[in-house]
């Protein structure tokens, strides 16, 4: 479980950075699959693509590794948005991990809304290693969305 320990620690550290103020910037926690999206983010970086600095990346072996409680935990500890990104359906390194993830996260997304958490704060994407530009676009888009929504006071403030 060393992986999830690290995950929680990172989520906490990220959370403690999030302080609303005049020059407030949202904190977005991104869980990236090691095989596609993490590499995609990497290629966005090495390609010098312009992207906002709001996203804190947590590398996971597979989007199927993302227990929905990671996401709720990130919100609970003060994240303003959460992003999960994995290989395109059909391209999973472990062949089916992202199909399971898709089901689970679909249910989670609906549930977050049910709990009164703005569903726009949580996005799932499929982004391959070669899609550096797509990653940059995803980051830009969610940053803008979450910034417009303002700080997610709700959960952290409970």
């Amino acid at each position: 479980m060393a992986g999830s320990q690290a995950t929680e620690r990172q989520a906490r550290e990220v959370a403690s950075e999030s302080r609303p103020g005049a020059d407030w910037e949202p904190v977005i926690v991104a869980f990236l699959c090691n095989w596609c999206s993490y590499a995609g983010a990497d290629s966005a970086g090495t390609g010098r693509m312009v992207q906002p600095a709001n996203v804190r990346i947590i590398r996971v072996p597979c989007s199927g590794r993302v227990n929905p409680r990671f996401i709720v935990r990130a919100f609970q500890r003060g994240a303003d948005g959460v992003l999960v990104s994995g290989c395109h359906p059909g391209d999973c390194h472990y062949s089916t991990g992202n199909f399971y993830a898709r089901r689970r996260l679909l249910v989670l997304k609906s549930y977050l809304e049910y709990l009164g958490i703005d569903p726009r704060r949580f996005e799932t994407h499929w982004c391959s290693a070669s899609e550096g530009q797509k990653w940059a676009d995803i980051v830009r888009s969610i940053s803008e969305t979450v910034k417009a929504l303002g700080p997610a006071q709700t959960l952290a403030g409970l």
Binding site: P89, F99, Y100, R102, L105, L106, H125, W126
Partner: peptide, 10 residues
């Protein structure tokens, strides 16, 4: 379990 035709999330 899952189905290939599950609604997509993206």
């Amino acid at each position: 379990q899952f189905a290939l035709e599950d609604p997509d999330l993206e």
